[in-house]
């Protein structure tokens, strides 16, 4: 079983207090939402790349970029096409194809939006790459998120790999019986998928039931207060990272206010 995304390393980012990582996530998300301009988005993407290097997860992150590339390309082209339908009074038409007039502002908007999408996914992915689900649960709980909610998030990370394995085994078992998923009309295909979906559903129910029983064994009470095994304390490295974040916020604000869009 592989944990979804988490890459165990001893980097400074991995060792940051999970609350600081969540704060970083919030700050980057808010900056992107409020200061969505091309220069700020470019700065954010550069920072994310630097963090990937510093966190020693560049290889895994680039794998992710490769997988997301097509999606980002589609987003870029779609925004250019949508922008090209309408004429912007401040824009300069670069070229026209039929009724589409591609202006410099369309390109800037499309690039900004694509970088925004990329940054948002990357910030989330950075948390997943560098924070295991136990840290994440405790981090979320310690910033006031109810434990039930943070535990649910943690369970998703635990259960997804199990379900992927189950799906693969069920699919193999049915294909071994001659099931072909890509053959026949709609009815036949629906029936084919039912041959996988039904056993998988029952396995999920069984897994859920076993997990619920196990939670009872561990005397888990939803909504009841709990103690915590790991107490996180803000260390010098966390403070230093907070300073870096403050610098980033200041620079982003300055660029947003004075460098235009």
């Amino acid at each position: 079983m592989q944990v979804v995304g988490y890459v165990p390393r001893n980097s400074f980012f991995h060792q940051l207090d999970p609350r600081i990582k969540l704060l970083w996530f919030i700050i980057f998300t808010l900056t992107a939402l409020i200061c969505r301009t091309l220069p700020v988005m470019s700065l954010m993407v550069i920072c994310i790349f630097l963090l990937w290097i510093a966190a020693d997860v560049l290889k895994e992150a680039l794998n992710f970029v490769r997988r997301a590339f097509i999606l980002l390309l589609i987003a870029l082209v779609t925004w250019i096409v949508f922008g090209a339908i309408n004429l912007d009074p401040n824009g300069v038409v670069l070229f026209s194809i039929g009724f589409l007039h591609v202006e410099n502002t369309d390109i800037i908007k499309a690039l900004t939006t694509t970088l925004y999408i990329f940054a948002m996914i990357s910030v989330f992915y950075m948390i997943i790459l560098t924070t295991n689900f136990s840290e994440l649960t405790r981090g979320l709980s310690q910033i006031g998120i109810p434990f039930v909610a943070s535990f649910m998030i943690s369970l998703i990370f635990q259960v997804i790999p199990i379900l992927i394995t189950e799906f693969s085994t069920v699919a193999d078992a049915q294909r071994s019986r001659g099931l072909e998923l890509d053959q026949g009309g709609l009815v036949k295909r629906s029936k084919s998928y039912a041959a996988i979906a039904f056993p998988l559903l029952l396995r999920c129910i069984s897994l859920g039931r076993n997990m619920a029983t196990a939670l009872h064994v561990y005397q888990f009470q939803a909504g009841s207060p709990r103690s915590t095994y790991r107490e996180y304390r803000i260390r010098t490295a966390d403070l230093f990272f907070c300073l870096l974040m403050a610098g980033y916020v200041a620079l982003s604000t300055y660029i947003f206010l004075y460098w235009g869009r």
Partner: peptide
């Protein structure tokens, strides 16, 4: 279905956290 935690020690501590044992 009975392991709740990332590392083995997190898993061992899970039940103890539930019964609010002191750290």
């Amino acid at each position: 279905a009975q392991l709740f935690g990332f590392s083995v020690e997190d898993t061992i501590a899970f039940g103890l956290e539930n019964i609010r044992l002191g750290r």
